[in-house]
Structure formats: structure tokens, C-alpha cells
Simulated scan of single mutants.
Amino acid sequence: MDYYAIVHNDFDGTASAAVYARAVGSLPTKVFFTEPTKIHNLLKSLELRGIKKIMIADIGINQSTLNEILTQLNRLQTEGAEIEWFDHHVWKDEWKTKLREIGVTVYHDVTTCGAGVINKNLNPDDEVSSKLAKADCAVDIWLHDDPLGEKLRRIVESNKDFKWKEYLINKFYNGVIWDEEFEKILEDQVDREINGYSKLHKHIRVLEIDGRKVVVAVRWKGPPDISYASQYLMNRYNSIVFASVNGKSISFRSNIIDIRRFAEKLGGGGHPLAAGAGLNAPFWRKLLNKIGYRKPMLDWASSVVRNVIKEVGFVEYEKNIRKSS
């Protein structure tokens, strides 16, 4: 079967593409890795070139780009494409209704990860897919109940090249979940992480907002990964929120605060405990940061974070299990 796979550019997106491929019995003709803040632009530039099926997975929807997404999906379907969308981020019911009204098949379930949504709906009896999805969910939705997830996430993130993720999709599709190649990469990655932790203090600032501590960071190159670093820094500084910027976007993390509210205020979205939004820094601040002078970028990022938190407020996340739909 010929089809395009459009997935998030992380472990969950990679795993989602592999689980879907195993479910339909073939690898995608082409994989497009993207982000929720860019999906509308990708769809706008997408040409079918004879392809009649598109799967989208682990990509949430932002209110600010919804209309353009609907326009482009409608165009692609008019040109003959069948579209399936699998996701686990928080959606408004009206978004799902609008997609279904134009003919998109929507699988939405906030109780699992992207790969888990596909596994549950398309191939629940496939042992390899179930094992991969379980490991993926352990780190993607912060369950931390499967050690394999921490290992595989490091494997996926060890190389930012999309060709590497395509290579991994192929391996997972062929039933390889762990091997000697992965073991060697893991050893090297952990060594690099340990070295990286000692340098994190150069990239951060600790704020106090309404009596609570918040860590703001300017993104660094190399390990540790943002998720591991955020946990480390929040624990070290007794912080309840972690925010990081790279000049183009902002990411929020927390263990107790519904930080998706902050991301939504900035035009983004995500999970209640892990979310983000597009956020362009002034050019001169990005330039200074690039040459190693981080203070201007940290000043700007701290102001953005302080303002959005002051406006939205700290709201604790209620970990109630929501029904899938």
C-alpha cells in the first residue's frame, strides 16, 4: 500500500509510524516529520503525486492554525486522498467534529501516547507493536513504568537527522526493538548526558513568581534531552515549572501544574504536563545567543514566561482519566 506518513519529529512520532506500518503491512512511501506549529504549512505544500492515503499521527491541533489545516485537508481529499489522524493531545470536541465533517477519520485518545492510539485501534494483538507502544508511552506521557522507554528515547534522540528516524522506523517495522547497535549507542549517549548536566547552569535562570519557583532556560546543544534536563533542574531548584526557548519556540514542563494553559495562551498546545508553542525571539537576541552571549535571550524569555504565568496563573493539573473518543 502506498501512503504518506506525517508524524511528530520525536520518539512518539517515530514509534507511531512504525506501529502503523506494521498494522497495514508496508512502510510509508515517504515520511514527513513535523510539529503541531508547522503542520498547516506542510499540508499546504504537500502534493499527492499519485498517493491516495495519508496518515497523521502524534500531531496535536492548535486553534490558531485550525482553519488552514481544514482548508488543506479538504483540498487533499478533493484530490482523492483518504486521511486518517491519530492523536492523544488535548483536543476540543469541535475540532474532531470539523475534521470528521470533511471526511477525515479521527482516532483520538488522551489516555495513551500516539503509538498507543494506533496500536489500540489497528493492531492490538501484535506483540512487537504493543511492546514498542508501551515503551513509548512510558516516556511520552510521563508514566515511567517501562525501562525500555528511557532507553529507546535516547536511541531515537541520539541523532537529529530525519534519515536516522526513517532507519529506526524500518528496524521497528521489521521487529527489531533492541540489539547490539542500540546498546552501544545507549552507552555513548549516557556518557554525553553525564557531561552535559555539569554545564546546564550556564543556560538557566530561576524566577520566583507568586511565591513559586520557575526555571527558564535557553536551549543547549546535545544531551541531556529537554525532558531529562527539566526533571533534573526542577528537582535541583525546587521549581514547579520549567520553560525553555530556542529562538523559534517555547516548551513547558511540570509535574503538577497544567502548563498547557500557558502554551495555549501563546498560541500552542500539547499535554497538560508537557506543552509548547511557536515563539520567535527578536533577531538581535538570537544572534547574541548564537555567539554565546545568553543574557539578552534569557532576559526576554524570562519576561515572556513571567507575563504568561501572571496572566494565566498556576493551576494544578487534576490527573483524572478522560474517556477516549
Rank of each mutant, 00 (worst) to 15 (best):
I177L: 15
I177H: 13
W178S: 06
W178M: 06
D179N: 13
F182N: 05
F182K: 05
K184E: 08
I185P: 02
Q189L: 06
V190T: 14
R192H: 13
R192L: 14
E193P: 05
N195Q: 15
S198R: 13
H201K: 12
H203I: 12
I204H: 03
R205F: 01
R205Q: 06
L207W: 06
L207A: 07
E208V: 01
D210S: 11
G211Q: 09
G211P: 07
R212T: 04
V214N: 00
V216K: 00
A217H: 02
R219H: 08
R219T: 05
W220R: 02
K221G: 14
P223F: 07
P224A: 00
D225W: 09
D225S: 11
I226G: 04
I226F: 09
S227H: 05
Y228N: 15
Y228A: 15
S230T: 14
S230C: 12
L233K: 02
M234V: 05
N235T: 12
N235C: 13
N235E: 14
Y237C: 01
Y237P: 00
N238K: 08
S239F: 00
I240W: 09
V241P: 04
F242N: 01
S244T: 15
S244Q: 14
S244Y: 13
N246I: 11
S249Q: 03
S249G: 06
S249T: 06
I250R: 05
I250E: 07
R253C: 13
R253G: 12
N255G: 15
N255D: 15
I259V: 15
F262Q: 05
E264D: 10
K265P: 03
K265N: 08
L266G: 04
L266Q: 04
L266C: 09
G267H: 09
G269V: 00
G270E: 10
H271Q: 07
L273M: 10
A275I: 08
A275D: 08
G276H: 00
G276L: 00
A277Y: 03
A277G: 10
G278A: 13
G278C: 11
G278K: 09
N280L: 11
A281H: 02
P282M: 04
